[in-house]
Computed example of a mutant assay.
Amino acid sequence: MQDQSHPDTTSATLPDERARGEIVNDSQTFRRAVGDLRQGLHQRELWLSLGWQDIKQRYRRSTLGPLWITIATGVMAVALGFLYSILFQIPLADFLPHVTVGLIMWGFISGCIKEGSEVFIANEGLIRQLPSALSVHVYRLVWRQFLFLLHNLVIWVVLMIVFPRPLGWELLLSALGLAVLMINGVWVSMLFGILATRFRDIAPLLDSMVQLLFYMTPIVWTTQTLYEQGGQIADRARIAELNPLYHYLEIVRAPMLGQPVAAYHWWIVLGCTAVGLLLAFLALRKFRSRVPYWV
């Protein structure tokens, strides 16, 4: 007869895995990874405020303040637009908006990649002292880059006034494409941020790769120009479509310029987004608890 004064409570108080003698690391579970992302969203007042303070801090004691963001992008767009429109013999009214929107979106993409690789290293003090989710720092970075993008969109508005073109309901696709870009900014910053915190050579490597990808992405040139030349040049233009960043640009840029977007651009972007989210989620699950020791 079992002693009722000392009941066997092992199976009632411990998980089945521990009852079988297995050791479960709770910090490396999907539940904790999801909890980190959710906690970061719940702390949105924190990262919204910090992201805005980043911009104010950068342009403190400046007369024009954040307008320098718009001026710098506008000057570069006009200079490159005039130069390459002459070299490629493309009408300025068609080429300048193409270059401008491309530079605006490229600024967001490159910012998420380059700054994302150092997002945890740059926030070492906060990570060690502030009990918050790691995703807070990622959301803060993407929010800051989004504010930069909003400043630069003023240039696009001016161009649409100077070079008017019909814009229909397709413009809503650019808003959807921008939302997809922000989601990708989260996984890019999370994945590269974790990897670059552990392996410090990744950050300068990514910086060099971004510079190379700028010239390989149709920003200051167009695939249409290459296709019109035919022959081997047209074949090389198809190689440009192997660059996924081209498709990310196209789903936002084409609607903003009143141009149709081929469906395959969206399929490629959605596929890359799904793969990237999976990789970032696995990295967060595996190494989330180690980042504070790596910074």
Score class of each variant (00 low, 15 high):
G102W: 06
P131A: 03
G193Y: 04
L257K: 05
L257T: 07
A133C: 02
Y139K: 10
V34Q: 08
W143P: 01
A33N: 06
R288K: 13
M216E: 00
V157L: 15
D207N: 06
I90Q: 14
V162C: 07
L130H: 05
L134I: 05
L103A: 06
A203V: 03
I155N: 08
L126T: 03
C272I: 09
Q145E: 15
M209Y: 01
V162H: 05
L167F: 01
E170L: 10
L270P: 00
D201H: 02
I71D: 04
G231T: 11
V119N: 11
E118M: 11
I194L: 09
G74I: 12
W47H: 13
T13C: 08
G74R: 11
S5M: 11
M1A: 14
R20E: 11
S49G: 12
Q89I: 14
V24Y: 03
L159A: 02
V142D: 06
V154C: 10
L130V: 14
L153M: 15
T217H: 05
Q53W: 05
V269F: 03
I268N: 03
Q43H: 13
F199R: 01
R200C: 04
N123Q: 05
Q28I: 06
R288D: 13
H42Y: 09
T217N: 00
L257V: 05
F192H: 02
P131Y: 02
I251T: 04
Q229V: 04
V99F: 07
I55E: 14
V220S: 03
I109L: 11
W47E: 03
L191H: 00
L92W: 10
L141A: 06
R144C: 08
I121A: 10
Q224E: 13
R31P: 09
T70Y: 02
P218E: 09
S132F: 05
W267E: 06
W52M: 14
L37K: 12
L277V: 11
V138E: 05
W266E: 07
A240L: 10
D36E: 15
E45D: 12
D94R: 10
P91L: 09
W106Y: 05
T222M: 15
W47C: 08
R58M: 14
P244V: 00
L270I: 08
S174Q: 04
G74H: 09
W187P: 12
G102F: 08
G271V: 02
